[in-house]
Design a protein around this nucleic acid. Structure first.
Lengths: 114, 114
DNA sequence: TGGCTTCCCATTGCGTCACAAGGGGAGAAG
DNA sequence: CTTCTCCCCTTGTGACGCAATGGGAAGCCA
């Protein structure tokens, strides 16, 4: 009823996309499906996904190629570039670091007086 | 050297602020200080913090009141409202749920074929 | 007295991004 | 031939983190 809180997806989407491509090329639709099932709760709309993919492509992290899907449809397959792979691992650690830091603060006690 | 990756702070800042106020009123400057030390790595600039505080105030989650700081300066003290307290706990659980979901996906295996 | 630092408040403008809404095309299935 | 599923895309819009900028008041030091 109330407005649900802000999209926490911010900054995490790219990482999830890179992860989904870490085993091999996927087309956009499959990426969205994977994220949905792997997280169990995060539904990525197409208006969110495709701009993100194009962004990653512009940054040289993924490369696209047209092909045929498992269902015999023309689909654009994305695959990690070498820099994409490097970026994936670095983004992964900084994501964990960030979560760790925030988590620590959320468990922390009151501010210590100087 | 490289461009650092996107602000992961998105969506987490409000939660950290609410947490910092969970023990009692603090002025803005102290909130920023607490976040910096409690996380050990996240530095919140004033151009980030004050808009956030005003936002939370507009939403009725915190209430502000002028007072005197420990250093004898006029400062605006923020304190959690009752709804703010409720919001803090709900936002807290959804933050953890989100992190858990993303974390699960980042540990997950390849997409299962249908 | 004058200048410097620290503390504390705030705004403007910019770029980024998640997202809803809308549009399209092509295979499959009824 | 209609409908469904799959698969692609763009255009707004609002939200938000952030650098830059400005100001004011207390305290210190010379």
């Amino acid at each position: 009823m109330d407005e649900l809180d802000v999209s926490l997806l911010r900054g995490t989407l790219d990482l999830l996309i890179l992860k989904s491509l870490s085993w091999g090329p996927l087309h956009g639709y499959a990426v969205a499906e994977w994220i949905g099932q792997a997280t169990g709760m995060l539904r990525v709309g197409e208006g969110t996904l495709y701009p993100a993919l194009h962004r990653l492509e512009r940054q040289g992290l993924v490369e696209a190629e047209w092909g045929l899907s498992e269902n015999n449809r023309t689909a654009k397959f994305y695959r990690l570039s070498r820099t994409g792979r490097r970026r994936f691992s670095s983004a992964s650690t900084s994501w964990h670091d960030f979560v760790e830091a925030a988590s620590r603060a959320l468990r922390a006690g009151p501010p210590v007086p100087v």
